[in-house]
């Protein structure tokens, strides 16, 4: 039987579900660096991120709370970005998911979103930054109110 013209697909790196499968050897090396107890969190979730900070020779954990607006990559280099409003100013921080300086990630709330990247939140202020969730989801603006944002109005009942 004749195969269609062109290069034979490489079985090791063939695309799978839209992702390049990393070669087994790389995965084996990465395994040593993966942090196993990272929770399963998604874009739109509000999370507490515990960041280890060295002050002099003492270590302390600072918590950064905000909405996850992006996750990119997979395996050891995967990163996630969290956005929050500090003193009226938008602050975004990005960490490698498996960074040892991130001591914990806690999901505070999960939000219903329809995008993979929530960059549109940057243009929004106050109430408009809230995300819908099971019951009413409050964004970083904090005020309670009717569900809105992300163009989705149907809140999922718990």
């Amino acid at each position: 039987m004749r195969r269609p013209r062109g290069r034979k697909p490489n079985q090791e790196t063939r695309l799978r579900k839209g992702r390049t499968m990393k070669r087994a050897g790389i995965q084996r090396i990465e395994a040593a660096y993966l942090v196993k107890d990272r929770p399963d969190f998604h874009i739109g979730d509000t999370v507490d991120v515990g960041v280890r900070i060295m002050e002099g020779d003492k270590e302390r954990v600072q918590v950064f709370t905000g909405v996850v607006i992006a996750r990119r990559g997979h395996g050891a280099p995967e990163t996630f970005s969290v956005r929050r409003i500090v003193a009226g100013e938008g602050v975004e921080r990005t960490w490698p998911l498996h960074c040892p300086a991130v001591s914990f990630i806690r999901v505070v709330r999960s939000g219903r979103v329809r995008r993979a990247k929530l960059t549109y939140l940057r243009k929004r202020v106050g109430k408009a930054t809230r995300l819908v969730e099971e019951r009413r989801e409050l964004g970083e603006a904090g005020a309670a109110g009717a569900p809105e944002g992300a163009g989705a109005t149907a809140a999922e009942a718990t």
Partner: peptide, 22 residues
Amino acid sequence: KLGMTSAFDDKGRQVPVTVIEA
């Protein structure tokens, strides 16, 4: 050359690495 990925050093810094099947 198998490809590149990340590692973390003892100070927690991200380091670019290449994995070679040797």
